[in-house]
Amino acid sequence: MERVKGLLIDLDGTLYHGKNRIDGADDLIRKLRERKIPYLFVTNNSSRTPEQVAEHLGGMGIPASPEEVCTSSLAAASYIAHESPGAKVAILGEEGLRSALLDAGLEPTEEIPQYVVQGIDRSFNYQSLAKAVQWIRTGAVSVLTNPDLLLPSDTGLTPGAGSLGAAIEAASGVKPIVIGKPSSILMKYATDRLGISPSDAIVLGDNMRTDIAAGANAGCKTVLVMTGITTDENMEEHMKAAGVAPDYVCRDLYEAADLLCG
Protein backbone atom coordinates (compact mmCIF):
# COMPACT_ATOMS: atom_id res chain seq x y z
CA MET A 1 0.00 0.00 0.00
CA GLU A 2 1.15 3.54 -0.74
CA ARG A 3 2.23 5.46 2.33
CA VAL A 4 -0.85 6.36 4.35
CA LYS A 5 -1.37 10.13 4.62
CA GLY A 6 -4.27 9.88 7.03
CA LEU A 7 -6.41 7.22 8.63
CA LEU A 8 -10.05 7.54 9.75
CA ILE A 9 -10.75 4.83 12.31
CA ASP A 10 -14.21 3.64 13.34
CA LEU A 11 -14.71 2.76 17.00
CA ASP A 12 -17.50 0.39 18.09
CA GLY A 13 -17.09 -2.91 16.26
CA THR A 14 -13.65 -1.96 15.00
CA LEU A 15 -11.59 -1.17 18.12
CA TYR A 16 -13.98 -2.38 20.80
CA HIS A 17 -17.29 -4.06 21.54
CA GLY A 18 -19.03 -2.01 24.22
CA LYS A 19 -16.52 -1.99 27.09
CA ASN A 20 -14.31 -4.75 25.68
CA ARG A 21 -11.23 -4.01 23.59
CA ILE A 22 -10.87 -5.98 20.37
CA ASP A 23 -7.58 -7.87 20.12
CA GLY A 24 -4.91 -5.80 18.43
CA ALA A 25 -6.56 -2.38 18.89
CA ASP A 26 -3.86 -1.11 21.24
CA ASP A 27 -1.13 -2.54 19.00
CA LEU A 28 -2.58 -0.77 15.94
CA ILE A 29 -2.66 2.65 17.62
CA ARG A 30 0.83 2.16 19.07
CA LYS A 31 2.22 1.39 15.60
CA LEU A 32 0.45 4.37 14.04
CA ARG A 33 1.99 6.64 16.68
CA GLU A 34 5.44 5.12 16.26
CA ARG A 35 5.34 5.66 12.50
CA LYS A 36 3.81 9.12 12.90
CA ILE A 37 0.86 8.25 10.65
CA PRO A 38 -1.90 10.86 11.17
CA TYR A 39 -5.26 9.45 12.24
CA LEU A 40 -8.57 10.34 13.84
CA PHE A 41 -11.11 8.24 15.70
CA VAL A 42 -14.31 8.87 13.72
CA THR A 43 -17.63 7.94 15.28
CA ASN A 44 -21.33 8.42 14.57
CA ASN A 45 -21.94 8.56 18.32
CA SER A 46 -23.33 12.02 19.04
CA SER A 47 -23.89 11.63 22.77
CA ARG A 48 -20.30 11.79 24.04
CA THR A 49 -17.84 14.66 24.05
CA PRO A 50 -14.33 14.05 22.66
CA GLU A 51 -13.05 13.98 26.23
CA GLN A 52 -15.52 11.23 27.14
CA VAL A 53 -14.65 9.20 24.03
CA ALA A 54 -10.92 9.46 24.78
CA GLU A 55 -11.54 8.44 28.39
CA HIS A 56 -13.56 5.42 27.23
CA LEU A 57 -10.77 4.33 24.90
CA GLY A 58 -8.08 4.91 27.51
CA GLY A 59 -10.02 2.83 30.01
CA MET A 60 -9.66 -0.14 27.66
CA GLY A 61 -5.95 0.41 27.17
CA ILE A 62 -6.27 2.13 23.79
CA PRO A 63 -4.17 5.32 23.76
CA ALA A 64 -6.32 8.34 22.87
CA SER A 65 -6.56 12.08 23.35
CA PRO A 66 -9.62 14.31 22.82
CA GLU A 67 -7.85 16.00 19.89
CA GLU A 68 -7.84 12.65 18.07
CA VAL A 69 -11.63 12.25 18.31
CA CYS A 70 -14.05 13.25 15.56
CA THR A 71 -17.77 12.82 16.31
CA SER A 72 -20.90 13.38 14.25
CA SER A 73 -21.80 16.16 16.72
CA LEU A 74 -18.60 18.07 15.97
CA ALA A 75 -19.17 17.66 12.24
CA ALA A 76 -22.79 18.82 12.56
CA ALA A 77 -21.74 21.89 14.53
CA SER A 78 -19.04 22.71 11.98
CA TYR A 79 -21.46 22.27 9.08
CA ILE A 80 -24.08 24.62 10.56
CA ALA A 81 -21.51 27.22 11.71
CA HIS A 82 -20.08 27.30 8.20
CA GLU A 83 -23.51 27.64 6.59
CA SER A 84 -24.95 30.12 9.11
CA PRO A 85 -22.48 31.52 11.69
CA GLY A 86 -24.14 32.14 15.04
CA ALA A 87 -27.37 30.49 13.94
CA LYS A 88 -30.19 29.77 16.37
CA VAL A 89 -30.53 26.01 16.89
CA ALA A 90 -33.06 23.79 18.61
CA ILE A 91 -31.17 20.85 20.14
CA LEU A 92 -32.63 17.37 20.46
CA GLY A 93 -29.68 15.49 21.83
CA GLU A 94 -27.32 14.85 24.71
CA GLU A 95 -24.16 16.34 26.18
CA GLY A 96 -21.89 15.66 23.22
CA LEU A 97 -24.20 17.44 20.78
CA ARG A 98 -25.01 20.39 23.01
CA SER A 99 -21.34 20.94 23.84
CA ALA A 100 -20.29 20.83 20.18
CA LEU A 101 -22.97 23.31 19.08
CA LEU A 102 -22.16 25.77 21.85
CA ASP A 103 -18.42 25.56 21.19
CA ALA A 104 -19.11 26.38 17.51
CA GLY A 105 -20.77 29.64 18.53
CA LEU A 106 -24.33 28.54 17.79
CA GLU A 107 -27.24 29.79 19.90
CA PRO A 108 -29.61 27.27 21.56
CA THR A 109 -33.24 28.31 21.41
CA GLU A 110 -36.78 27.01 21.48
CA GLU A 111 -38.15 30.17 19.86
CA ILE A 112 -38.13 30.09 16.04
CA PRO A 113 -34.87 28.17 15.46
CA GLN A 114 -33.10 28.28 12.10
CA TYR A 115 -32.01 24.66 12.52
CA VAL A 116 -33.38 21.63 14.35
CA VAL A 117 -30.36 19.48 15.22
CA GLN A 118 -31.16 15.95 16.36
CA GLY A 119 -29.00 13.13 17.61
CA ILE A 120 -29.57 10.33 20.07
CA ASP A 121 -31.82 11.72 22.80
CA ARG A 122 -32.86 9.37 25.59
CA SER A 123 -35.26 12.00 26.95
CA PHE A 124 -37.07 12.24 23.58
CA ASN A 125 -40.87 12.17 23.96
CA TYR A 126 -44.07 13.16 22.18
CA GLN A 127 -43.58 16.81 23.11
CA SER A 128 -40.08 16.73 21.59
CA LEU A 129 -41.50 15.27 18.40
CA ALA A 130 -44.32 17.81 18.22
CA LYS A 131 -41.98 20.78 18.68
CA ALA A 132 -39.45 19.51 16.15
CA VAL A 133 -42.14 18.92 13.54
CA GLN A 134 -43.66 22.36 14.08
CA TRP A 135 -40.27 24.09 13.77
CA ILE A 136 -39.36 22.20 10.60
CA ARG A 137 -42.73 22.70 8.97
CA THR A 138 -42.42 26.45 9.54
CA GLY A 139 -38.99 26.69 7.92
CA ALA A 140 -36.24 25.37 10.20
CA VAL A 141 -33.61 23.20 8.52
CA SER A 142 -33.59 19.62 9.79
CA VAL A 143 -30.14 18.21 10.61
CA LEU A 144 -29.61 14.62 11.75
CA THR A 145 -26.26 13.77 13.33
CA ASN A 146 -26.37 10.13 12.25
CA PRO A 147 -28.89 7.71 10.76
CA ASP A 148 -28.18 4.67 12.97
CA LEU A 149 -31.52 2.99 13.63
CA LEU A 150 -30.28 0.76 16.44
CA LEU A 151 -27.63 1.00 19.14
CA PRO A 152 -26.03 -1.84 21.13
CA SER A 153 -26.56 -1.73 24.90
CA ASP A 154 -26.13 -3.98 27.92
CA THR A 155 -29.74 -5.09 27.47
CA GLY A 156 -29.60 -5.61 23.71
CA LEU A 157 -30.34 -3.33 20.77
CA THR A 158 -32.10 -0.04 21.49
CA PRO A 159 -33.46 2.71 19.17
CA GLY A 160 -30.78 5.02 17.80
CA ALA A 161 -30.78 8.58 16.49
CA GLY A 162 -32.04 7.39 13.11
CA SER A 163 -35.18 5.90 14.64
CA LEU A 164 -36.05 9.22 16.27
CA GLY A 165 -35.18 11.01 13.04
CA ALA A 166 -37.49 8.70 11.10
CA ALA A 167 -40.44 9.82 13.26
CA ILE A 168 -39.57 13.48 12.73
CA GLU A 169 -39.19 12.99 8.98
CA ALA A 170 -42.47 11.07 8.69
CA ALA A 171 -44.43 13.75 10.54
CA SER A 172 -42.75 16.79 8.98
CA GLY A 173 -42.48 15.42 5.45
CA VAL A 174 -38.91 16.82 5.27
CA LYS A 175 -35.77 14.77 4.76
CA PRO A 176 -32.97 15.86 7.09
CA ILE A 177 -29.42 16.75 6.17
CA VAL A 178 -27.52 13.68 7.40
CA ILE A 179 -24.05 14.36 8.79
CA GLY A 180 -22.75 10.98 10.00
CA LYS A 181 -21.81 7.82 8.13
CA PRO A 182 -22.73 6.80 5.42
CA SER A 183 -22.86 10.51 4.53
CA SER A 184 -19.63 11.97 3.19
CA ILE A 185 -19.99 15.10 5.36
CA LEU A 186 -18.39 13.50 8.43
CA MET A 187 -15.54 12.10 6.32
CA LYS A 188 -14.90 15.50 4.71
CA TYR A 189 -14.88 17.16 8.12
CA ALA A 190 -12.35 14.61 9.38
CA THR A 191 -10.02 14.93 6.39
CA ASP A 192 -10.17 18.73 6.65
CA ARG A 193 -9.04 18.41 10.26
CA LEU A 194 -6.11 16.26 9.12
CA GLY A 195 -5.33 18.74 6.36
CA ILE A 196 -5.50 16.15 3.59
CA SER A 197 -7.68 15.39 0.59
CA PRO A 198 -10.26 12.59 1.01
CA SER A 199 -8.48 10.76 -1.82
CA ASP A 200 -5.38 10.58 0.40
CA ALA A 201 -7.27 9.12 3.36
CA ILE A 202 -8.11 5.55 4.31
CA VAL A 203 -11.22 4.59 6.27
CA LEU A 204 -10.89 1.58 8.58
CA GLY A 205 -14.16 0.05 9.76
CA ASP A 206 -16.24 -3.06 10.31
CA ASN A 207 -19.53 -1.95 8.79
CA MET A 208 -20.09 -2.01 5.02
CA ARG A 209 -23.26 0.11 5.21
CA THR A 210 -21.77 2.93 7.28
CA ASP A 211 -17.96 3.00 7.47
CA ILE A 212 -17.11 1.62 4.04
CA ALA A 213 -20.02 3.36 2.30
CA ALA A 214 -19.06 6.70 3.87
CA GLY A 215 -15.45 6.29 2.79
CA ALA A 216 -16.46 5.41 -0.75
CA ASN A 217 -18.96 8.29 -0.89
CA ALA A 218 -16.23 10.73 0.15
CA GLY A 219 -13.64 9.36 -2.26
CA CYS A 220 -11.45 7.72 0.40
CA LYS A 221 -9.81 4.32 0.16
CA THR A 222 -11.38 1.75 2.47
CA VAL A 223 -10.24 -1.15 4.61
CA LEU A 224 -12.88 -3.53 5.97
CA VAL A 225 -11.87 -5.38 9.11
CA MET A 226 -13.83 -8.48 10.06
CA THR A 227 -14.12 -7.66 13.75
CA GLY A 228 -17.74 -6.59 14.05
CA ILE A 229 -20.85 -6.24 11.91
CA THR A 230 -19.51 -7.77 8.68
CA THR A 231 -18.85 -11.50 8.62
CA ASP A 232 -18.06 -14.08 5.95
CA GLU A 233 -21.70 -15.10 5.99
CA ASN A 234 -23.25 -11.65 5.49
CA MET A 235 -20.53 -9.83 3.54
CA GLU A 236 -22.13 -10.23 0.12
CA GLU A 237 -25.49 -9.09 1.49
CA HIS A 238 -23.97 -5.99 3.09
CA MET A 239 -21.94 -5.17 -0.02
CA LYS A 240 -25.07 -5.32 -2.13
CA ALA A 241 -27.01 -3.15 0.32
CA ALA A 242 -24.19 -0.61 0.55
CA GLY A 243 -23.61 -0.57 -3.19
CA VAL A 244 -19.84 -0.47 -2.70
CA ALA A 245 -16.95 -2.85 -2.08
CA PRO A 246 -13.95 -2.27 0.21
CA ASP A 247 -10.54 -1.73 -1.33
CA TYR A 248 -8.98 -4.12 1.18
CA VAL A 249 -10.29 -6.75 3.60
CA CYS A 250 -8.43 -7.76 6.78
CA ARG A 251 -9.33 -10.65 9.05
CA ASP A 252 -8.31 -8.82 12.24
CA LEU A 253 -6.54 -5.72 13.54
CA TYR A 254 -3.11 -7.34 13.48
CA GLU A 255 -3.49 -7.88 9.74
CA ALA A 256 -4.77 -4.32 9.38
CA ALA A 257 -1.74 -2.98 11.28
CA ASP A 258 0.60 -4.86 8.95
CA LEU A 259 -1.23 -3.49 5.90
CA LEU A 260 -1.37 0.11 7.10
CA CYS A 261 1.91 0.42 8.97
CA GLY A 262 4.17 -1.92 6.99
Rank of each mutant, 00 (worst) to 15 (best):
S73V: 02
L102H: 02
A130D: 12
T230S: 10
C261P: 12
I80V: 15
Q134T: 12
L101V: 04
D23F: 09
M239E: 14
L253G: 06
G13P: 10
S78E: 13
E34F: 08
T138Q: 13
S153K: 01
K175A: 15
V116H: 05
E94H: 01
I196N: 04
G13S: 12
L92S: 14
A77T: 05
A170E: 10
E95M: 09
Q118E: 11
D247Q: 06
K131G: 07
G61I: 03
G18I: 04
L97S: 08
T14L: 06
H82L: 11
I136K: 00
T138G: 05
E95C: 07
D148Q: 00
D247R: 09
A104C: 10
L144Y: 01
L40H: 09
A216L: 04
L40S: 04
P182L: 13
T14S: 09
P152Q: 06
K181S: 09
M187F: 02
G262L: 05
K5R: 15
S197Y: 05
T43G: 00
S65M: 12
A64E: 06
H17A: 15
E95T: 14
V203E: 01
R251W: 04
D258H: 14
G180C: 04
R209N: 13
D103A: 15
S153V: 05
V223W: 10
S142E: 08
A170G: 05
A241T: 14
A216V: 15
D247G: 15
S142G: 01
K221D: 12
A166E: 11
T230M: 07
T231I: 02
E51C: 04
T109D: 09
Y248H: 14
S163F: 03
K175Q: 13
V141S: 12
I22A: 03
I179M: 08
I212P: 03
E2T: 13
A130M: 13
P152N: 03
D26P: 05
G139P: 01
I62Y: 06
P246T: 13
A201G: 11
K175D: 12
A166R: 13
R21M: 15
P159F: 08
A256N: 02
E111K: 13
E111T: 12
G243D: 10
S73F: 01
G119Y: 03
L150I: 14
R21W: 02
S184Y: 07
N125M: 07
S65G: 15
A214D: 05
R48N: 13
S197W: 03
Y79T: 07
Y189W: 05
A167H: 05
P113Y: 13
I212K: 03
A257I: 02
K188M: 11
P198E: 06
D154W: 00
N45V: 00
A81H: 00
A140D: 00
G59Q: 07
E2F: 11
K188E: 15
A100R: 04
V143C: 08
K221W: 10
N44Q: 06
A54Y: 08
G195M: 11
P85W: 01
E169L: 10
P246H: 09
